[in-house]
Design a binder for these strands. Sequence first.
RNA 1: CGGGGUGUAGCGCAGUUGGCAGCGCACCGCGUUUGGGACGCGGGGGUCGGCGGUUCGAGUCCGCCCACCCCGACCA
Length: 479
Amino acid sequence: MADEKLPNKKDNFAEWYNQLVLKAELADYAPVRGCMVVRPYGWTLWENMQAGLDRRFKETGHVNAAFPTLIPMSFFEKEKDHVEGFAPELAVVTHGGGEKLEEPLAVRPTSETIIGYMYSKWIKSWRDLPLLINQWCSVVRWELRTKLFLRTSEFYWQEGHTAHATAEEAHEETYRMLDVYTDFATNDIAIPVIKGIKTESEKFAGALESTSIEAMMGDTKALQSGTSHYFGQKFAKAFDIQFLDKNNEQQYCYTTSWGVSTRLIGAIIMVHGDDQGLKLPPKVAPIQVVLVPITKKGDDNDKVMAVANKVFEDLKADGIRIKMDDRDEATPGFKYNYWELRGVPLRIEIGPKDVEKGSVVIARRDVPGREGKSFIPQADIIKTVHAVLSDIQDSMLQKATEFRDANIHNPKNYEELKEVVKDGWALSWWCGSSECEAKVKQDTKATIRVIVMDQPEGAGKCIVCGEKAEKKVYFARAY
RNA sequence: CGGGGUGUAGCGCAGUUGGCAGCGCACCGCGUUUGGGACGCGGGGGUCGGCGGUUCGAGUCCGCCCACCCCGACCA
């Protein structure tokens, strides 16, 4: 029954990550190369994340719909940059019902094209705008190197696609949704992110401007955790999305798209996890509290179980996602490790001693060992659990923020930059040339993650070439 | 697609000069246990990646093929 221990996180981050995903039963490898199966525990986590995101999308005026998986190949040829970006990683259906198809169908790698096609049918008037639609689905990209949750051939996500009457409105939408992602990352999954604008070489295929939120993983590498794109009229022109404005003149729409994926689960693992296993933020944890009754044969177990059952029912009735682990084939010690591996934020132990004293033991997942354990009165249990879960959520964000900030450096020259990006991020001036950007990548593997959104006043010298620079950017190695 | 590696039970592996296919964990049963990964006894489970060759006999030797993993180029 005893699972082997995880590899050490510090010395072997990649292996630690892989085994954690498998052992915590978040996901498993599928028979098709590069594909994953999201297991019930992982999917419940995703559902809780979806709920937090979906609520925010609706609050900002969006509605959900479902567009088809299969897209005519010709759609990808309508926008030059888009086809160049996605053609190499398309999966294509060539046969149906035993017959070779007249036109091959691409399995969607993203839905700008099919949604653009539909928008051109639906949008006729300025009164139809803005059109704000999101869909939850999976997409397929034939990736060369895959890693569970971080990069798989098929992954689950949401993609929002909006059409607007003016450039300003569309641009505002792009930034609004980036803020929504920032808010979700910070408050729901306790991951501090840095938002900014992508450079030319890093932006989405076909976008005029790409923005993203970047998070620092436990090994200090960066993970692009959410993106929001502004297309201007590029896609509208490719797909003929036009409307009659108030002056009875035909205008092309301005469009956006934005998405986050199950990759965020990878971020949660890599930001919060430790040698014991997962550490899930209480707001999205499938199980927030696990209750372990301590029973001994011969003792009066009924008393322990009576208290345990009452605590369980009380907390459940109060909306806490609680699990009772009363398996009699496993010892308490085994159960502690079992649920710690799975990242349950809070554990309650109830044994004969607690029944006697009218107390229970609570153990915080975010504070390992004895320090995280405390005795609380049974009478206060509901209040205490809510308070502690909220405190765990806060301290997880705080800890992640401290770690991130401690690993962001301000190198004084190029030599220093090369040093710091080996194990951290660099915040530096950049002249804006793609040559300097490419040189850093060549020398260090680090790329410009984002151009910071709220630029400081004034200017400096490019960390690479020394020329005048007006933009501060983050350099980091990334997943 | 280049470089490196691995394919034997669900997982991790051993298998010597070619000679009855094994070990640990997991799984099933019974009993004893249970406040930080319990133990005893008894079980079930195999197309040794595939195809071909050498041989009385191949997990083992030879050839071809396939799959997967790691490192690069590409990517949310």
